[in-house]
């Protein structure tokens, strides 16, 4: 097994995370926001796997699995919220739910 430089893996994870963050901050469509969050979760998972493989430890993969679980739960609730939002406001614009502004 040849060695893949772990810092490259981490770099990629960071870039993916930043792209996901960018999506979260930029998109107004709530579906895209949720997708971007999935990208961020995935990037974190990638970072864990890189670390785990570098130290030859299974902990990284376990963390990845926990992140996966979290992502699944999050996406289930999040998409349910999207449906509810669409039913009430007939839109997927995230700015429409800003009634709690100070």
């Amino acid at each position: 097994m040849i060695s893949i430089p772990v810092e490259h893996g981490l770099l990629l994870a960071t870039i993916l995370f930043c792209l996901g963050l960018l999506g979260v901050l930029v998109r107004r469509n709530i579906i895209f926001v949720l997708m971007s969050m999935e990208i961020m979760f995935n990037a974190v998972g990638l970072a864990f796997i890189s670390g785990g493989s570098r130290w030859h430890q299974a902990d990284g993969q376990i963390m990845f699995m926990l992140v996966l679980t979290l992502a699944a739960a999050e996406v289930a609730v999040g998409l349910a919220l999207v449906l509810q939002l669409y039913k009430r406001f007939k839109t997927v614009d995230i700015d429409i739910v800003s009634e709690m502004k100070g």
Partner: peptide, 10 residues
């Protein structure tokens, strides 16, 4: 400070 409470998640 209350200006920062826009109600916008982003």
């Amino acid at each position: 400070l209350s200006l920062t409470q826009t109600g916008r998640v982003q």
